[in-house]
């Protein structure tokens, strides 16, 4: 490329070079945009060729089930990453939501039976906690990773305080139905997660709020000058992330029929990784709902394939790490950000 450019230095005017460079950039932009999809196709092909079970209906359902909870987390987290922020409270929020919902529905430790209302209350608390985080982040101007980490600690502690040491077992038949039920062979939990994803995608792509998130993440100074409401948008983003974290916590509780603080343990960073694999950026302004979906799918397929191959758990971790570094190196826009922190 460089040699070719050097040759063009003599033949083209600066103006023509500028156009050529812009076209080059547009081309690279396109490649980068489709790179995650290509990666997904390659991943799927490798899976299918090396493992004949890979395309079996049972394994496809399995992959869909495995990606359900990461997908729900990714919905809210995508917005946060689009802003260039991070939400480290997700795991704490999940643990708290799972513990509280176990406490509110039929269980082995008390006589509560709030059913669906219990679930709604828990999700609303998730929204409120997220909004509070957003408020502290924007008004008290605390960096998002600090304020969300602190909130995560609070929520984890609060979760344990709910059940005072002994995790609560859920006995509610509704939970059993949802966790085991299937429609056309697809688990309810997967269907719920897809529904959450679709709502999240619609909000992101068809509301002024969603567009504003892109604008702020890309160029906050410019977004401010257009007179869109930066503070309110950011608070909404964290509220939304709190909401999806709470939903993920409730779903996790349904799966395990157990309410405890570490329901969310090690759930967040794989999703951050998945979003980046899908073309999102931790510095904001890039990505989107669909990209996140693709990323979560790639990540889940990779994990599933390694399991099918019978790879040792520790080797699996090493391979995952290497693949992530390669994928991110290939997709990141090297010439855009000069300072990487």
């Amino acid at each position: 490329m460089n040699n070719k450019r050097r040759g063009l230095l003599e033949t083209l005017t600066v103006g023509q070079q500028f156009v050529a460079r812009a076209e080059d950039n547009a081309r690279m932009d396109k490649i980068r945009r489709y790179a995650p999809l290509i990666l997904l196709v390659i991943m799927t092909a490798i899976g299918g060729i090396s493992q004949k079970n890979f395309f079996s209906w049972a394994n496809i359902v399995n992959i869909m089930f495995q990606m359900s909870i990461p997908l729900v987390i990714s919905v809210g987290l995508s917005y946060v990453l689009l802003l260039g922020s991070i939400d480290l409270s997700i795991e704490g929020n999940m643990g708290f939501a799972g513990s509280l919902v176990a406490f509110l529905v039929i269980n082995n430790s008390n006589s509560n039976n709030f059913g669906i209302f219990g679930i709604i209350v828990v999700i609303l608390i998730g929204v409120a906690v997220g909004a509070l985080v957003g408020f502290l982040h924007t008004k008290a101007k605390i960096a998002s990773f600090i304020v969300t980490y602190a909130m995560g600690c609070i929520m984890t502690g609060a979760a344990i305080l709910i059940y005072r040491g002994t995790p609560i077992q859920v006995k509610d038949p509704m939970f059993v139905t949802i966790s085991q039920g299937r429609l056309f062979g697809i688990p309810y939990i997967t269907l719920i997660s897809f529904a959450v994803f679709i709502i999240g995608a619609i909000i992101m792509n068809y509301t002024a709020f969603g567009r504003a998130v892109f604008a702020i993440g890309d160029n906050e100074a410019a977004a401010a000058s257009t007179g869109i409401n930066i503070t309110r948008t950011k608070i909404k983003v964290f509220a939304l992330c709190g909401c999806t974290a709470a939903i993920a916590g409730v779903l996790q509780c349904m799966r395990l029929k157990l309410g405890q603080s570490d329901l969310g343990l090690n759930q967040m960073f794989p999703v951050v990784t998945a979003i980046v694999l899908g073309g999102g950026s931790v510095s904001g302004g890039k990505g989107g709902a669909l990209q996140s979906f693709v990323g979560v799918l790639i990540y889940t397929e990779l994990a599933n394939w390694l399991t099918l191959m019978g790879v040792d758990t520790n080797v699996k971790k090493v391979i995952q790490g290497i693949i992530i570094i390669i994928a991110v190196t290939l997709t990141v826009e090297h010439n855009r950000k000069t300072v990487v922190k």
Binding site: A208, R211, A212, F214, A215, G217, D218, N219, A221, A222, A223, S225, T226, G227, I228, G285, K286
Partner: peptide, 23 residues
């Protein structure tokens, strides 16, 4: 640095300050 939002399209850049009226 303060005016254009590079990631958005021309139509979004034109209408961003008046999205309230375009719903």
């Amino acid at each position: 640095d303060e005016g254009m939002i590079g990631i958005l399209s021309i139509e979004d850049n034109i209408t961003i300050s008046s999205w309230e009226h375009l719903k």
